[in-house]
Amino acid sequence: MELLVASGTAVMTAVGIYLLLRGRTFPVILGLTFLSYAVNVFLFAMGRLAINRPPIINPLAEGYADPLPQALVLTAIVISFGMTALIVVLALRGFLESGTDRVDLEILPETAPTGTQEGGDMAGPRS
């Protein structure tokens, strides 16, 4: 089981890093997702791998699984889930506004001096 978990984490990390280095937004997002899967499994394994051990107090238990990494993983899952949703929306908006899903920042000559002006006509949605 140790071998399986360890090599699974390693493969997911490798896949995640490879995808992160791609030039389009979708593979990058997949890469981030793989990395967060890898870190979740990794964190879980940090409490030592144990089978059939309860994490909470039980009079019949012979031993306990460490509950803290499980709580940490839960927090990490929630955060990475939310972040994935955010970055998907961000990538989509970027694609819709610029017409390309490449991640490099092509700087057009007219926008070169950093667009402090866009939306400057106060036409944006007023809250």
Binding site: V28, I87, E97, S98, V103, T111, G115
Partner: peptide, 18 residues
Amino acid sequence: GGGAPRLKAGFHYVAINL
């Protein structure tokens, strides 16, 4: 404030921080 350059740069920023 939005805008295409900001969204592109924002993607980088979010990805690096993730």
